[in-house]
Nucleic acid binder design. Structure first.
Length: 263
DNA sequence: CGTGGCTCCTGGCGGC
DNA sequence: TGCCGCCAGGAGCCAC
């Protein structure tokens, strides 16, 4: 579930809590979430070093170390970061626990273990290897329009495809399409230029609102789809019962009244 | 190129 | 009450 706004929140959380202090211990409790690095190597590369700054691309968080390595975090569906001061406060599903010399801790907590952690030399090489598309927050309108050229898949699938656009997942793609009044199955080649511009503007607004609300610990406005994205939920505009369909194996919620199917 | 199906994982919930 | 089975979904893989 962590999509771009959540990962950006984790980034700011890490910036606030975990930079510029020496790592004392690294406890890998579930080595199966490590990718292309084993736990001894991870331990060796982190201990006695410091995180200097972080970056984010799509749903990935990168933390730069003073030895020129990057710790790469992907939160899967249930992953999050938890910073705490007393060792008996460690969360229930901490897969990796980083202890700092100042006796504080940063845990990668992830009940479902869909998260992934790697250690890489170069961030851009990692992004290339993963074939990630441009970041949904950074992308400009021109490049965004280009994503839709010579494609014909369903718009929801395109928005969620990390190889095309990085950062948007199932939940926020539903929100964006709801606000743009587009049926999630609409083939992208059927969208007019103006409509694609709308999607772009709405995408930016939705991501910004979600981030602001996350940072302030506030819920999304009731006028959004997401708070109503539950069984028997109703459209905040038309009061119609929301419908669900499977698209690319994901459950899409949409309003059959506001988001008409393309003819 | 596109889509659909399966897999990984486990807490939570509906149904019997 | 207790247990079975399904669902949630990010991403990778494979078949067509």
């Amino acid at each position: 579930m962590p999509e771009l706004p959540e990962v950006e929140s984790f980034k700011r959380y890490m910036d606030k809590t975990s930079l510029n202090k020496t790592i004392k211990s690294v406890e890998v409790k579930n080595p199966e979430i490590l990718q292309k690095v084993d736990k001894h190597d991870l331990k060796n590369k982190l201990e006695e070093h410091q995180f200097q700054y972080t970056r984010r691309h799509g749903k990935y968080l990168f933390a730069y170390l003073d030895n020129d390595y990057w710790l790469v975090l992907h939160f899967g569906m249930t992953g999050k970061l938890i910073y705490f001061k007393d060792s008996d406060q460690s969360p229930l599903y901490d897969r990796i626990l980083i202890g700092f010399k100042d006796k504080t801790f940063l845990a990668f907590d992830d009940p479902r273990k869909f998260g992934k952690i790697s250690l890489v030399n170069k961030m851009d090489v990692f992004i290339k290897e993963k074939k990630l598309g441009p970041d949904a927050w950074e992308i400009g309108l021109k490049s965004f329009k280009n994503l839709f050229k010579s494609r014909k898949g369903a718009i929801k699938t395109v928005l969620m495809n990390q190889h095309i656009l990085a950062g948007v997942g199932n939940i926020y793609s539903d929100e964006i399409l709801f606000q743009a009044c587009i049926h999630p199955k609409t083939p992208v080649n059927k969208l007019k230029n103006k409509k694609i511009e709308d999607v772009y503007t709405i995408m930016k607004e939705v991501l910004k609102t979600a981030l602001d609300r996350n940072m302030a610990n506030q819920k999304l406005p009731e006028s959004f789809l997401i708070p109503n994205r539950v069984e028997n939920g109703k459209c905040p505009n038309s009061d119609t019962k929301l419908e669900t369909i499977k698209i690319s194996g994901r459950t899409a919620y949409y309003c059959p009244e506001c988001q008409k199917e393309p003819i």
